[in-house]
């Protein structure tokens, strides 16, 4: 079981860059996690020291290939007379720094819950007039990994009240409901069994703050919803579609639960 150590905002890992440490330290001054959430730790805390080092090292974390591809796509015109993302979002390192920390969020125009993937697709279809990339396409993963990486080290800061409240409540109910032939809830594993071994895995809080992440099991980068589908399959429950309302609400609940933890995209996981 988790020995109950308090949330450590700045990790002692010497391989985490000073910039990230500083950013996280500053973030800690502003964000006071609620007591119930103070125990939640990032998935990184449960990785082997070697994998943590690899995740932090841009030259050894394979997911940075996707970040690079995303950076390139971001400034490329989708057609000769079209507009690149960069033509609306100049200097993304500044203008979009922190953007990913606020997703999922309720889209003001439609009232629908959008995650980062959903917002990227919306820009692509409505503003660029291009066909959607499609969930789990290498382009959408690259773009999401890139935009996520611009928030690396900044605390998750989603809204869970107001218009977001019904989505958050739906996600919470999903998280707490037993499901599948094995009749287990997300909560039973990701609250009750944290730190225990489930075969080769050490069960974490299921924070999801490293996604899209490179998973050794996939030998690939995948979205958070791909990870959720793996957990659903694990208990022999219905796997909801990528981008489904069920997983979007769950994503918001997870993000609300992880509020104050640093974004670690692109992460590395087993």
């Amino acid at each position: 079981m988790d020995p109950g150590s308090p949330l450590r905002c700045v990790r002692d890992d010497p391989h985490i860059s000073g910039v990230i440490k500083l950013a996280v330290a500053l973030a800690c001054l502003v964000v006071q996690p609620a007591p119930a959430q103070a125990q939640i730790k990032s998935g990184t805390e449960f990785l082997s020291p070697e994998m943590r080092r690899q995740q932090a090292d841009e030259t050894r974390n394979p997911a940075f290939f996707w970040v690079e591809q995303g950076r390139e796509l971001f400034s490329r015109k989708p057609s000769p007379d079209g507009q690149a993302c960069a033509s609306c979002h100049a200097e993304p390192q500044q203008s979009l720094r922190g953007a990913a920390t606020h997703y999922p969020q309720v889209d003001a125009a439609t009232g629908k819950l959008l995650n980062l993937e959903g917002r990227i697709e919306q820009c692509r279809v409505e503003r660029q007039g291009q066909p959607a990339f499609g969930y789990e396409s290498s382009e959408l993963l690259a773009m999401t990994a890139y935009l996520g990486s611009l928030s690396r080290g900044l605390p998750v800061d989603v809204k869970t009240d107001g218009a977001a409240k019904p989505y958050y409540e739906a996600g919470k109910a999903f998280f707490e409901r037993r499901q599948g032939q094995l009749n287990l809830s997300c909560q039973q594993c990701h609250d009750g069994l944290v730190g225990q071994k489930l075969r080769g895995d050490t069960v974490s809080h299921g924070a999801g703050t490293g996604y899209p992440a490179y998973r050794l099991e996939w030998n690939d980068v995948g979205s958070l919803h791909r990870r959720l589908r793996a957990c659903s399959l694990g208990v022999r429950a219905t796997q909801f579609d990528y981008g489904s309302p069920e997983y979007l609400a769950l994503e918001l609940y997870l993000a609300g639960r992880a509020r104050g933890l640093p974004v670690e995209t692109p992460g590395m996981r087993r």
Binding site: R177, Q179, Q181, R236
Partner: peptide
């Protein structure tokens, strides 16, 4: 309990189609 029910088909939610109506 966390121990799954291996011989039960009722009062289970969102069971994947391949496993529906069958005990584990």
């Amino acid at each position: 309990t966390v121990m799954p029910p291996y011989f039960r088909t009722e009062n289970l939610h969102d069971v994947a189609p391949a496993y529906r109506g069958k005990p584990a």
